[in-house]
Structure formats: structure tokens, C-alpha cells
């Protein structure tokens, strides 16, 4: 009885602390108050962030109809990109703060955690004006009425609340490398670590699916189960900065093999950015610390 007297309150407190710790963290709405989105500028953010690569329909010819439905296999189950077009099945009815919470905090308007297959851990570093511009641009895209498909994720990963714990462990919102002029400056780092979310595929993950930042851009198994995603670190990637920039522009490797797989989508986006942006990314890549 004496033990119970202690244990019951302790359990209640632990559960309370657990709920508090795993509760969704939202953006401060004041940071978005008074911001007006510019759709034309938002198109560039949209391109650099590669939104369409994952959210266009698997068979869709028009890659600006963000119907969703592409499957993303992982160790935890298969995630399906949702509909993010401006329809009732997508983002209709959202305001900028809803959008900012989704993109930079991984929290839905209903207060549910999103799975980190959606790279909000990278987008967390997105500048508020870019978020507003992106939101404005996405309103101009075609609407699709196809409902989003449920993720195919087993217990215990299907408990969304558990993602609060995941976020506590792995979601810092901080940059990994310091910005420097030789490493593409602030712009290069912003493109690589925030918008283009390169590390999501090029950095290996730990057993819980968090990025292993000690092996930053060190290459990783392909989550599709086929082959590997190459390392970008100088111990592995011997291309010059010009080679990297040209690859991002044309899709040609220095020996004129061509880009393939999901990276073809990525190059398609980079080819639409400016030459300065591509060079900034290339310099960031060339300045990566070598791994063993």
C-alpha cells in the first residue's frame, strides 16, 4: 500500500511530463504577423525546396499538380506523400501560420505531428519571408481533389504522439556546419541544409531514423532498398566545384554519365536556379569535412 501511494502519483506525473514533452511545438505567430507573400519569389523557394519532386502524383505528367501519392519506403513503413494542392483535400482553408507550423515544425493545423519523411527538420531553418512567399506561390498551383493516402506504418510508429519523443531527440533546427565564404557562404549553407534538404538522403540515419550528423553527407543506403546514395565528402567525391555545379545544371557527371533515380528530379530543380546558387552549393559540398 505504501509503495502504491508513491507509485501511482509518480506514474501520473511521469505520464504528465511525457505528454508535455511530446506535445507539438508551434511557431510564434508574431513572427509571421504582417508578412505578405510574393508568389513570384515563392516559385524560386518552391524550386529550391524541391516540393514537387515528392508531392507530384506518381504518374502525373504535370509536376505542378501536387496530388501526392508517391510511396517512400523506410525501415518504419511506407509513407505516402499527401495532397498539398490548394483543394479541400489539400491546403484549402490553411492560413500562413498553419503552413509555417507544418513546414518548419512538422505540426498539422489539428496539432498532430507529421512523420519526418517530410523534411521539416531541414525546412525549420527556412526564413519567415521565404515561408510566406512559398505559401503564396502554392495557392496559385492547380487544385487536385484526390484524397491523401494513409501511411502504411506499423505499431508503435503509428502512434503519432511518439513523434514528439523523436523530435526531442533529433529535431534541433540548428545548422550542422558553420557558414564560411569558402563553403558557399550563408546562401550555400541555406540551400544545402535548409531548402534542398540534401542530407535527408546523403547522410546515414541511426536506428531510430534520426540523421547521424557525425557522418554528415557520408552516404547512406537507399531507403528504396536498392543500391546506395553516394557520399559527398571529399574522401569519396573527387569532382571539382565546377564539376559539381555543372552536374547540378546539366545532369552530366565529369565523365558524361548522366544523373538517374530521384537525383534526376533534384537536378531538374537545380537547373532552374541561378548559376551563383549552384556554385554556392558546389562550394559547400567541396568544403565538407572528410570522414575516415
Amino acid at each position: 500500500m505504501g509503495v502504491l501511494k508513491f507509485l501511482v502519483p509518480a506514474a501520473v506525473v511521469a505520464a504528465g511530463v511525457g505528454l508535455w514533452l511530446t506535445a507539438p511545438t508551434r511557431v510564434d505567430p508574431d513572427r509571421y504577423a504582417g508578412l505578405t507573400g510574393d508568389a513570384a519569389a515563392g516559385e524560386k523557394v518552391f524550386t529550391a525546396a524541391g516540393c514537387a519532386s515528392c508531392h507530384h502524383a506518381p504518374t502525373g505528367e504535370d509536376k505542378l499538380v501536387l496530388t501526392g501519392g508517391q510511396p517512400f519506403a523506410s525501415d518504419f513503413g511506407t509513407f505516402y506523400a499527401p495532397n498539398i494542392s490548394p483543394s479541400d483535400q489539400g491546403l484549402a482553408g490553411w492560413d500562413l501560420v498553419d503552413f509555417a507550423n507544418a513546414v518548419t515544425r512538422g505540426v498539422s493545423p489539428e496539432g498532430q505531428h507529421y512523420y519526418p519523411a517530410f523534411p521539416y527538420t531541414a525546412y525549420a531553418k527556412m526564413q519567415t519571408q521565404d515561408v510566406a512567399d512559398l505559401f503564396a506561390y502554392m495557392q496559385t498551383l492547380p487544385a487536385s481533389d484526390t484524397p491523401s493516402q494513409a501511411h502504411d506504418v506499423g505499431f508503435p510508429f503509428n502512434i503519432r504522439r511518439s513523434l514528439g519523443g523523436w523530435k526531442l531527440l533529433f529535431f534541433t533546427g540548428d545548422y550542422v556546419l558553420p557558414a564560411s565564404p569558402e563553403a558557399g557562404g550563408e546562401r550555400g549553407r541555406y540551400l544545402v541544409e535548409a531548402l534542398a534538404h540534401c542530407a535527408e538522403c546523403h547522410t546515414p540515419r541511426n536506428a531510430l531514423g534520426g540523421l547521424d550528423t557525425t557522418r554528415w553527407m557520408g552516404g547512406a543506403p537507399n531507403p528504396s532498398g536498392q543500391g546506395t546514395i553516394p557520399a559527398l565528402t571529399p574522401d569519396k567525391l573527387t569532382w571539382s566545384a565546377e564539376d559539381v555545379a555543372y552536374y547540378l545544371e546539366s545532369g552530366f557527371t565529369p565523365d558524361y554519365d548522366s544523373v538517374g533515380g530521384h537525383m534526376a528530379e533534384v537536378v531538374d530543380k537545380f537547373s532552374k536556379l541561378s548559376a551563383e546558387d549552384r556554385m554556392a552549393v558546389a562550394q559547400y559540398v567541396k568544403a565538407l569535412p572528410a570522414l575516415d
Binding site: S250, G251, F252, S258, V259, G260, G261, H262, A264, E265, V267, D268
Partner: peptide
């Protein structure tokens, strides 16, 4: 290059 990517993708 676009035609290479289009297929390799």
C-alpha cells in the same frame, strides 16, 4: 541531358 534524365529517372 534532359532526355538522358527523363529515362534514367
Amino acid at each position: 541531358g534532359g532526355s538522358c534524365k527523363g529515362c534514367h529517372d
